[in-house]
Each structure stands twice: as C-alpha cells, then as structure tokens.
C-alpha cells in the first residue's frame, strides 16, 4: 500500500504564479478536518487532479517533488472494472459524477476512499468537488453499511402507522440505533425518508426485500433469521 499523501494543499494563484502550501501535519490547521471524520494522517487529498485543470500548476507541483500517491486499486478487481467501464461509457464527463458514484456504491456497498480517489483522478476533478457531492446525498455512504441491512421507512404513511415502534423494538433487541452498524459488521440499521411503498405501510426493507405491513416482532424475528444463516 502506497498511502503517502498526507497534506491539504492550498493553491494560491495570481496571473503568473501558483503556490502550493503543504501545512505541517502537527499544525493546528489540520485539526478542523476531524469534524469530517477523516483521520488526519490519512487526509487523502489527491493532489494531481486537484491541479489538473490548470496545467501549469500541475507541473509546478511535480517539480516540488512531493509524491502523489493513493492506495492503488487492483485493476483486476471486477468492481474496479465495472467502475472503469461506467466512466468510459460516460466519456469521463464531470456531469456524470453522480451516475458513476451510484455504480461504485452498488459495487462496494459504500464508497471506500481509494475508490473515490480513483474516480477523482479519472474525471480530473478537484477532490473537494467529489467529497462535497458524496457527503451531500443521503444515498452515498463513506462507511460500510453492514453485511445485512435493515432499512426502516419513516415516511409520513409509515410514521402514522407506527414505524417508530419498529425502530424502538430493533434498538431494544439489537442495541443498534438508526445509522449504526453492529461491531462485527453483520447488521446495519438505517432509516429512509420514504421508499414510496405507502400503501404497504409500515414498510421495512431487509436486504433489498420489502416487508409489507411490518410488525416490530416479525421484523426482529426476520433479522435474527438473517443473522443466523451466515
């Protein structure tokens, strides 16, 4: 693993000059990133795509001799191939970013950082742009959602028909609140704003399978069954 990239890079540009500042890891200015849950030693901001729209600054960066490396993805991984094919199909257009992220999320179940770096580089986008897009949309997740997922719909119809009771029962039996994943990564509990199955309220989605008119007891039973089969 060649995970060297550490620093946050600020590019000051006037008409003729680009300057790169690579702050000290120990300096206080990096601390603010903790809020986004990126371990400061792995602040994987990839420099090249960050600069690539401006060719000159890219050269300057290369001259400065700082390594531009992220954890390399195995190119033979079918998931990587899938993403590569999607990017090629979309002609590496920046506006297809969300589509490509969908493909990546479907392949991995979440968006690992090295995958994001790979997409960032391939599309020649600033990492900030990719990161800000990923964190904006609920669909994308930077963390694993667990091997089995239990998605409780909390849309209005489900709310009126008792979705909260289901969530409470799940929490009582598994100790997991919405948004949490069990320590062994076997089960993740999430909530959805509305899955559009309002006629079947309250609805719960267990591993992509919609459970219509769910009751708390039945859901907990089904979760246990899922956990035992593995």
């Amino acid at each position: 693993m060649k995970m060297i990239q550490v620093a946050f890079i600020i590019c000051f540009t006037d008409i003729n000059h680009s300057l790169l500042c690579i702050p000290d890891v120990a300096s206080s200015s990096l601390k603010q990133y903790k809020a986004y849950e990126i371990p400061s030693q792995y602040l994987s901001v990839v420099a090249r795509p960050f600069l690539s729209p401006h060719k000159n600054s890219g050269e300057l960066f290369m001259k400065s001799g700082t390594a531009v490396l992220e954890k390399e993805l195995p190119k033979t991984d079918p998931r990587v191939k899938l993403i590569a094919a999607k990017m090629k199909k979309e002609n590496y257009k920046a506006d297809a970013l969300i589509e490509i992220l969908h493909t990546a999320q479907n392949a991995y179940g979440y968006l690992p950082k090295e995958v994001l770096s790979y997409i960032t580089q391939s599309l020649h986008l600033p990492p900030s742009r990719v990161y800000s897009t990923v964190t904006f949309y609920h669909f994308f997740s930077l963390k694993s959602k667990g091997e089995h997922t239990c998605l409780v719909c909390t849309g209005t119809a489900c709310y009126v028909k008792g979705a909260q009771a289901i969530l409470n029962e799940i929490e009582r039996k598994t100790g997991l609140k919405a948004g949490q994943v069990s320590a062994d990564n076997k089960l993740g509990v999430q909530v959805a704003r509305c899955i559009g199955a309002c006629g079947l309220a309250p609805a719960v989605v267990l591993d992509d399978e919609v459970q219509a008119k769910a009751t708390p007891e039945e859901i907990v039973k089904k979760i246990n069954a899922k956990l035992e089969t593995v």
Partner: peptide, 11 residues
C-alpha cells in the same frame, strides 16, 4: 424526484 414522504404518484 418525488421526495415528499407519503407520495408515490410519479413512481
């Protein structure tokens, strides 16, 4: 992008 919870006409 039918986001209203409780609506599923477009779907």
């Amino acid at each position: 992008d039918e986001g209203d919870p409780g609506a599923f006409m477009d779907r």
